[in-house]
């Protein structure tokens, strides 16, 4: 693992969103490796294969076919191998129920997909540069939902 690069993964069934996501990272010029997955099953198969490098930062869409983001979150959080992985929920929904559930299951931050590409870039750069050790210690329901 090259420590200069930050390993980022995104699981989202929406092709457009994956495109926005990779474009944003390209434009941000952050030294990163972005891998994308089309659904939860694909993501979990990748993660369970120990030959693959684990992402440092995982963006999880909630509403996905086959295996939802919440199911993936539960599976990852119950596996000790992934205990240092930072998980950001990346969803269109901002319903109280979704925020509550993912917070309880141990996600690190909740991002509502922005309406504007420039905002998206700002959000992603904020998340990547956050000191997660520090943030996680002070995590509560108030700062769980990312506001810009």
């Amino acid at each position: 693992m090259n420590s200069d690069y930050i390993n980022i993964a995104l699981a989202d069934d929406d092709e457009d969103d994956r495109l926005f996501f990779t474009d944003a990272f390209e434009e941000l010029k952050i030294k990163s490796k972005v891998s994308t997955f089309e659904d939860g099953i694909e993501l979990m198969e990748f993660l369970e294969n120990s030959n693959n490098t684990h992402p440092d930062l995982l963006f999880l869409d909630l509403n996905m076919p086959k295996k939802s983001g919440l199911e993936c979150l539960v599976e990852i959080k119950t596996n000790d191998r992934f205990k240092n992985m930072v998980i950001a929920i990346y969803s269109t929904s901002s319903s109280e129920m979704d925020i509550e559930n993912t917070f309880v299951q141990g996600a690190n931050i909740y991002i509502k997909k922005p309406n504007n590409f420039e905002t998206l870039k700002k959000v992603l750069s904020e998340v990547v540069t956050t000191n997660w050790q520090y943030h996680t210690n002070g995590l509560n329901k108030e700062n769980f939902l990312l506001r810009l």
Binding site: D16, D17, T92, P114, N115, N116, L120
Partner: peptide, 11 residues
Amino acid sequence: EPLRKIQTFIS
């Protein structure tokens, strides 16, 4: 969702 995409593409 579709609305958000319209807005993002326009931006």
